[in-house]
Design a protein around this nucleic acid. Structure first.
Length: 425
RNA sequence: GGAGGCGUCGCCUAGUCCGGUCUAUGGCGCCCGCCUGCUAAGCGGGUUUGGGGCUACAACCCCAUCGAGGGUUCAAAUCCCUCCGCCUCCGCCA
């Protein structure tokens, strides 16, 4: 939720922001008139209520006719109060609905446009030249099969399309990656967390995943629970309805959790392999900070993401995501995309967003400072989304015989294993 | 899943049976001041959060807030209903 004061004091700024995301500004006028109606309703209700309380106080002392008279008047007032209250509730609801449907105000620096209008900020490393090395790279599906690391057939048999089993060195790779990510996070001062993957509607709504993104969310039949697509959801809700000590900020968490996505809008996309799956495990960084610090913190999150990719010796680029592709909550988003040799392109591995006070307003997360309490900024960033990272590692570090070199940093977490050897041709 | 108990403004707590004087008691903690070689103790004051009005986004006034939401009533922390959470016991289970 954006700051209602900005909407009231500077609606043109909000209109411009809507336009920058390619959205209509009709909602701005709807919100403004709802706000006016709401304040009028509050005013009416409160004055009636004050009068009612005033008179009500006199009733216990009153006697005879005076008492009868008072009871009659307060009874009439009570009906008015009830009516005014109902009117207020209606106005309040309209205002809330309008406000909740508005995305965060994109940062001025964020490039304008849709999915393809990102700006490349940086390219790190050089994609491996397999032609020069004299062999055709195998894709991760083939490598996963040869190594006995990824079992897609049985994934489909047991759970359906977009599911997989990680087996043998594949399972070992996942655990090693989780350990490496958690180790880095711990060393950087993060609190390690294992978070629940099922949450109540409030957590989902508060993080902005029940808006246009709702189609991608699994809901548990017969229960008021959702499966999260990222531990950003439980970690944002973690401190909901709390007032945190300003001096304790920033609070940095690294949360491990399974993630579930319907992938509703992506039929036919990435149907092969484990690039796009319905379930995967992920270590996610999540930070609560002041608004002022959030911009610098966002850069730090990106730096930690890059540090991790560097440890895995991957080639990647960093993009500044365009406004149309930011999602509801973010004002700015940086993605790290790793080079996938057999696709001949960069694919998203990590993503970090600054959501400023948007989620905090919805989830009621505040900080206590010397000059009062204020909503905090929340930020998130992927440290390691397992399957895509495995894809990048297998394809990037493969050798002509189908074996795969284990990056140095990962070796201690793989029991010293330096090379993953094929178990079948 | 069954039975019972509980949820009060940071923490603890009074109040709930018998609705109005609750503008919610007291203690601890914290903040400001006084006093005192320093500290502690003592004394005085302050200390939920959100919203509206008016404004300098001050002061002030008002409304809401006793887990959440409804209901009864002129009036609800207090009575009724639903939900959420915690605790104890039983059952089941990793």
């Amino acid at each position: 939720m954006i700051d209602p004061r900005i909407l009231r004091d500077d609606p043109d700024r909000v209109r411009a922001a809507q336009a920058k995301r390619g959205l209509s500004d009709e909602v701005v006028d709807r919100a403004l008139s709802a706000d006016a109606a709401r304040r009028a309703a509050i005013s009416t209700f409160e004055s009636r209520r004050a009068e009612q309380k005033q008179l009500g106080k006199q009733i216990p002392q009153a006697q005879g006719d005076e008492k009868t008279e008072l009871l009659a008047r307060t009874k009439a007032l009570a009906a008015e109060v009830k009516e005014a209250e109902a009117a207020q509730a209606v106005a309040e609801e309209e205002w809330q609905a309008a406000l909740m449907s508005m995305p965060n105000l994109a940062a001025p620096e964020a490039p304008e446009g849709g999915e393809d209008d990102f700006v490349v900020l940086e390219e790190v490393g050089t994609p491996r030249d397999f032609a020069a090395e004299g062999f055709e790279p195998r894709d991760h599906v083939e490598l996963g099969r040869m190594l006995g690391a990824i079992d897609l057939e049985r994934g489909a048999k047991v759970s359906g399309s977009r599911f997989y089993f990680l087996t043998g060195v594949g399972a070992q790779l996942e655990l090693a990656l989780v350990n490496l990510a958690m180790e880095q996070a711990r060393e950087a001062g993060f609190t390690q967390v294992v978070a629940p993957s099922l949450v109540r509607p409030r957590a989902m709504e508060g993080t902005g995943f029940l808006g246009q993104a709702a189609d991608d969310v699994y809901r548990i039949e017969g229960e008021d629970l959702y499966l999260v697509g990222t531990s950003e959801v439980p970690m944002a809700a973690y401190h909901s309805d709390e007032i945190l000590d300003g001096a304790s900020l920033p609070l940095r968490y690294a949360a491990f959790s399974p993630c579930f996505r319907k992938e509703a809008g992506s039929h036919g996309k990435d149907t092969k392999g484990i690039i796009r799956v319905h379930w995967f495990d992920k270590v996610e960084m999540f930070v609560y900070s002041t608004l002022e610090e959030s911009y610098a913190e966002h850069e730090r999150l990106l730096a930690w993401e890059k540090q991790f990719l560097d440890k895995l010796e991957l080639s990647y680029r960093v993009i500044d995501v365009a406004t149309g592709d930011l999602g509801l909550s973010a004002i700015r988003k940086f993605d790290c995309e790793a080079w996938i040799p057999t696709q001949g392109k960069y694919r998203e591995l990590t993503s970090t967003s600054n959501c400023t006070e948007f989620q905090s307003r919805r989830l009621d997360i505040r900080g206590r400072f010397e000059d009062g309490t204020r909503p905090l900024a929340t930020l998130n960033g992927t440290l390691c989304a397992i399957p895509r990272t495995i894809v990048a590692i297998l394809e990037t570090h493969q050798q002509a015989d189908g074996s795969v070199r284990v990056p140095k940093a990962l070796q201690p977490h793989m029991g010293g294993l330096e090379v993953l050897a094929p178990v079948q041709p």
